[in-house]
Amino acid sequence: MFQMKRKMLPALAIATTIAGFSGAALAADQWVVEANDSEIEFTGTQLGAEFEGKFESFEADIVFSPDDLAGSSVEVLIDIASVNTSNGDRDSQIVSADWFDVAQWPTAKFATKSFSEVAPGKYEAVADLTIRDVTREVTLPFDLEIEGNKAEAEGTVTINRTDFGVGQGQWQDTSQVGDAVTIKIGIEAMRP
C-alpha cells in the first residue's frame, strides 16, 4: 500500500540523519568535576564521639543524563593517602596496614551499576564500592540539580567499615572505633 517514491529518498535520508543525531544527543553526557567545589567527606566515631574527615583527592569519570539513566555511569577513584581528619596521628593510622593499607591498596573505587529516579531531582545509584580487596554493593541516594551546563549532586550513604576489612586484628572491635561510617559526597561538575 505504501510505496516509496524515488524523490522521497533524500527526505528520508535527512530524517534518518536527524534522528541519528538526536539519538546521539539523547545519549548521556560527559561531565567534568570541578575539583575545588567537590568533596568526599565522612563521619566516623571514635571513643563514642563523632569526628569528620575528607578525602582531598579523587578522580571521577561521569557520564550522566537524566533522560538516559541506562546509559549513565559514574566511576570514582579515591586516593586514600589524601585522607584528612585534621589530626596527623590519626591520618597516618588510617593509611597504615591495619586500616586501609595504602601501600597495598592505594585507591578505593566506586563504580555505578544502575541509576533510578525516585522523585524529581532525586536519584539512587546502585554501585560497587571497593575498599582494600573487598567489593560490596552500596546504594547511594542523591539529589541532583542541573542548570545549563552545571550540575550539583549531593548524597549520603552509611557503610560498615568492618565489611571492608578496615580495621584488622584488635581494631575489628567496634567499641572504641565505631563500625558505621557515613560518607557524604558533594560534587559540582560542568558539561563541556
Partner: peptide, 22 residues
Amino acid sequence: AANFPVSVFGLFTLPNLVSPNQ
C-alpha cells in the same frame, strides 16, 4: 584541637571548643 571530640561515658558528646589545629 585534635578533632577528637569528647564523649562523656558514651552518653553524649561535648561540642568542640576550638576548631582543629595541630
